Amino acid sequence: MSYDAVLAETVGIRGHGDDLVEAYTARPMAPGPRGGVIVIHHMPGFDRATKEIVRRFAVTGYDAICVNLYSREAPGAEPDDAAATARAQGGVPDERFVGDARAAARWLRDLPTSNGRVGTIGYCSGGRQAFLTAVEVDVQAAVDCYGAFVVGRPPEGFPLQVAPLAHRVPEVAAPLLGLFGNEDAHPSPAQVDELEKLLQENGKSVEFHRYDGAGHAFFAVDRPAYRPEAAVDGWRHIEAFFATHLGA
């Protein structure tokens, strides 16, 4: 029988500005080498559902880590309270996120089981940050799950106040998989089409999938937005994409 145990635990890593930040990690208890995955949590924060995704990647055969991007705003707070604090401040600054993502990639590569290849996946605000990771961080694959405002700006009063990233498409340095719901408003189908066209025109490796009857957060099993058919098909694409670019 194969050995299928995993180790999951919360650790501290040195993130942007050498700050000590909280991170949830999961690893197969089997010899490597293998790829690593940076999981970027959604706007609701560093919650139980996000940690389940981290463990899922470990079960699939990857070392995985998710940094609590709200560690500084609300240390020790419950996810909902930390997310509310971060929303009130307009979200996580891009520069700080990039520093934390680089630290997560370094943590993965420092593991004795690492094969040197790292991918990233993000949901909601994390989808936009996954795109940013493909620009700023040494990763070999990136997955954007319905990330808003890569193209276009947030409307006035929206809890996430960030600048668009479309002008940085020429800098994307990793293959990009995108998964989107056609009933979503942020990003809208038109914005998804615009981003895909920009990536294609710049010769980037891009694979986008769109789902009818699905809106924002269709992967979120604990929310009314969950759409099983779209989520199951999306996970199939994610697993194939990472197997290709990170090693099965």
Rank of each mutant, 00 (worst) to 15 (best):
P93K: 13
D94R: 12
T85G: 10
S125N: 07
A103N: 09
G127H: 03
G119L: 06
G152T: 08
I121V: 15
V169W: 05
R153A: 15
A141S: 08
R168Q: 15
L160F: 08
P155C: 07
R128D: 07
A166Q: 12
D110N: 14
D110M: 08
Q161D: 07
G91A: 09
P164D: 09
W107L: 07
Q140E: 13
A83Q: 10
A84K: 15
E156G: 13
G99L: 11
P112K: 10
A88Q: 13
A163L: 13
F97M: 05
P93G: 13
A86P: 03
A141Y: 03
V92R: 11
T120Q: 05
P93Y: 10
D94M: 05
Y146H: 11
D110A: 13
R106F: 00
Q140A: 11
A166R: 08
E156L: 12
G122V: 10
A84M: 14
V118I: 15
E136W: 01
V118G: 01
L160V: 15
R153Y: 00
F97S: 11
A105S: 09
V139Y: 02
G91F: 02
G99S: 07
R168P: 01
A130C: 01
G126P: 00
R117G: 01
V162N: 03
F149C: 05
D138R: 14
D94E: 13
L165Y: 01
V151E: 08
A142C: 06
A84Q: 14
A130I: 08
A130W: 01
A134I: 13
G157L: 05
V150L: 01
A142Y: 06
L108R: 03
D144Q: 04
L108Y: 06
A142N: 06
C145N: 10
A163S: 13
Q161A: 04
Q161C: 00
G119P: 08
T133A: 14
L111R: 15
T113W: 05
E136T: 06
A103H: 02
A148D: 05
R106Q: 14
L160M: 12
A148N: 04
Q129R: 13
V162M: 11
G119K: 07
V150A: 02
S114E: 10
A105Y: 03
A105Q: 07
A142F: 09
T85S: 09
G116P: 01
F131N: 06
A166P: 00
R106V: 12
G127I: 11
V92D: 07
L132P: 02
G99H: 09
P159K: 09
R128N: 07
R117P: 00
G157I: 06
L160H: 04
R168G: 02
V135M: 04
P93I: 12
E95T: 15
F149K: 07
D144I: 14
S125W: 11
A134K: 05
P154S: 10
G147N: 07
A105F: 00
F158T: 08
P93D: 12
V139W: 01
C145L: 14
G90R: 02
R87G: 00
G91Q: 07
G99E: 12
A86E: 05
P112M: 11
V169M: 10
P154I: 15
H167T: 15
P155H: 06
Q89Y: 00
V169D: 04
R168E: 10
V137L: 09
V162P: 00
V135Q: 06
T120S: 15
